[in-house]
Design a protein around this nucleic acid. Structure first.
Length: 199
DNA sequence: CCAGACGTTGTT
DNA sequence: GTCTGG
DNA sequence: CCAGACGTTGTT
DNA sequence: GTCTGG
C-alpha cells in the first residue's frame, strides 16, 4: 500500500470542499494535486489515516469472500465489538469535507453536512485495502435529516480512537452546517461542485 | 451436528 | 469460509 | 446496490 | 435526471 502522506500535512489536503478524496485516475502526490470527487459512492477510492498516522488510499466498502452481494459500507458502533465480521479489522479514520444524507419524506431530499472551515474525520475500520464508516445514532440537529450519522472524530481524539478508548460520542456534530443540495447528486454520474452547493 | 447467518441502510 | 444457536 | 432504461417497431 | 429489476 502506497503511503501518500503524513497526518501533519493534513492542511495540504484542504484545497477544496470535496466530499472525499479520490485518487482513482492517477497516482498523485497529495501536495501537488488532488482530484475532487463530489459524489463518492460505495467502492470509490477514499483516503484514510491508519494507526501509524499514514494516509493511504482504500476502497470504501468491506467485502466478504462468501458473498458477492454483501458490501459493508457502514458499521454500527453499538455492535462493533460483537460482530465477528469486524473482529479482524483495524481502526482507521476517513478524511472528508462533508457527507450527504437524504431526508426521506414522500420524496428523498439530499442534504450536505460539513464544517465551515475544517475537514471531517470519520471513525472507520479497515481490512486490508477496504474500509467502512462507523455510525451512531444522530444528535438533535442531524436527526432532522436522518436517524444515523457517522461518528465524527476530533483531531485531538485520534489516539483515543486507535486505542479503543473512544466512546463514540461526537459533540462536534452540533457545529455541522447542514443544507439542502440539488437532487443532481442522486446520480453518481453527476460529479460536480454543484452537488455540494446550497440549493 | 448442521442449517442458517454472517452487515447496514434502505444507497452514498 | 466460518461461526453459532437450536 | 447499480446497470440499464427511459419509446416503438421505421429496423435489428 | 430518476427509476427499477435483479
Amino acid at each position: 500500500m502506497e503511503e501518500l502522506g503524513k497526518v501533519k500535512k493534513i492542511r495540504d489536503l484542504m484545497c477544496g470542499r470535496f466530499t472525499l478524496y479520490d485518487f482513482s485516475k492517477s497516482k498523485l502526490n497529495i501536495k501537488r494535486k488532488v482530484i475532487p470527487n463530489y459524489n463518492i459512492v460505495p467502492n470509490s477510492n477514499v483516503l484514510v489515516i491508519d494507526r501509524n498516522n499514514r494516509i493511504t488510499q482504500v476502497k470504501w466498502g468491506i467485502s466478504v469472500s462468501w458473498s458477492k452481494k454483501i458490501n459493508i459500507i457502514n458499521a454500527r458502533s453499538e455492535t462493533l465489538d460483537e460482530k465477528k465480521i469486524f473482529s479482524k479489522t483495524q481502526r482507521c479514520i476517513f478524511l472528508a469535507n462533508g457527507y450527504f444524507e437524504w431526508k426521506r419524506d414522500k420524496v428523498k431530499t439530499p442534504y450536505y453536512h460539513t464544517f465551515r472551515n475544517n475537514m471531517l474525520y470519520f471513525a472507520g475500520i479497515k481490512n486490508g485495502d477496504e474500509a467502512c464508516i462507523v455510525t451512531r445514532q444522530s444528535y438533535s440537529n442531524t436527526n432532522i435529516i436522518h436517524e444515523r450519522q457517522p461518528v465524527i472524530l476530533d483531531y485531538l481524539d485520534f489516539d483515543k480512537w486507535f486505542l479503543k478508548n473512544h466512546n463514540f460520542e461526537c459533540l462536534n456534530t452540533k457545529n455541522l452546517l447542514i443544507f439542502r443540495v440539488s437532487t443532481e447528486v442522486n446520480n453518481p454520474r453527476n460529479n460536480t461542485i454543484n452537488n455540494i452547493l446550497k440549493k
